[in-house]
Simulated scan of single mutants.
Amino acid sequence: MTPQASDILAVAGTLYRFAAGIDRRDAALLASAFAEDAVSDFRPAGRKAGFDYPVLEGRETIVAALLGSLAALDTSHTVGNPRVAVDGDLARLDALVEAQHVSRADPTRQYLMKNRYDVELLREGDDWVIRRVTIDSIWRSGDPSVLAGI
């Protein structure tokens, strides 16, 4: 069965909701991108930045951790090159996300990452939500300690 263009756009739109939720500090928008039992694995990118991040499990845990850990930063996430495969009510999304992190206390301190997102999604009603996301860094530039809020 060939996926509908509307499903392909909606799957990509889920990652756009994720990015906008983080950048706008909008917990409801960010939560709308995740399944209740979602898993977020930032370990591959974290290791390259010199940090040991845990795997996060559950929508509430993920949203609280992301918004909490980025509270001292201004961020901008740009999603590009989304490739979507839909199989019924399941989908895979591979995309590149450029994530700029700027210290609010000292805007001269910045950390820029180009990350590859490997995302598994499922359809919940009329929406697509992230079941699992694994984030790996392709390249990075700047001061990684910005991610620690220091």
Score class of each variant (00 low, 15 high):
A31Q: 02
A31S: 09
A31P: 05
S32D: 08
S32G: 12
S32H: 09
A33Q: 00
F34H: 00
A35G: 10
E36T: 08
D37W: 04
A38V: 08
A38D: 07
V39I: 12
V39M: 08
S40F: 10
S40C: 11
S40G: 10
D41A: 13
F42W: 07
F42P: 01
F42S: 04
R43G: 05
P44W: 13
P44G: 11
A45W: 02
A45E: 00
A45V: 08
A45F: 03
A45K: 01
G46F: 00
G46C: 02
R47G: 06
K48T: 15
G50F: 07
D52K: 10
D52Y: 04
P54N: 06
V55P: 07
L56Q: 07
L56W: 14
E57F: 01
G58S: 03
T61E: 12
T61A: 07
I62F: 03
A64V: 02
A65P: 02
A65V: 06
A65F: 12
G68A: 13
G68W: 13
S69R: 13
S69P: 05
L70F: 15
A71M: 11
A72Y: 12
L73Y: 05
D74K: 09
T75D: 05
T75K: 03
T75Y: 07
H77Q: 13
T78K: 14
V79F: 01
V79C: 03
V79D: 02
G80A: 12
G80V: 11
P82I: 02
V84P: 00
V84C: 01
V84L: 04
D87E: 14
D87P: 04
G88K: 11
D89E: 13
D89G: 11
D89N: 14
L90Y: 04
A91F: 06
R92A: 12
D94E: 12
A95E: 09
L96N: 12
E98H: 08
E98A: 10
A99Q: 07
Q100I: 11
Q100T: 11
Q100Y: 04
H101Y: 08
V102W: 03
V102C: 05
R104D: 10
R104S: 15
R104I: 12
R104E: 13
D106Q: 04
D106R: 02
T108F: 05
T108I: 14
T108C: 08
Y111D: 01
M113C: 09
K114I: 11
K114G: 14
K114V: 13
K114D: 09
K114F: 13
N115H: 03
R116Q: 14
R116M: 14
Y117P: 06
V119I: 15
E120A: 10
L121F: 00
L122P: 04
R123A: 07
E124C: 10
E124D: 10
G125A: 10
G125T: 14
D126F: 03
D127S: 09
W128I: 08
I130A: 03
I130T: 08
I130W: 01
R131M: 10
R131K: 13
R132T: 06
R132K: 09
T134I: 15
I135L: 12
I135T: 01
D136T: 12
S137E: 09
S137D: 08
S137L: 10
S137V: 15
W139G: 08
W139I: 09
S141D: 14
G142I: 08
D143L: 06
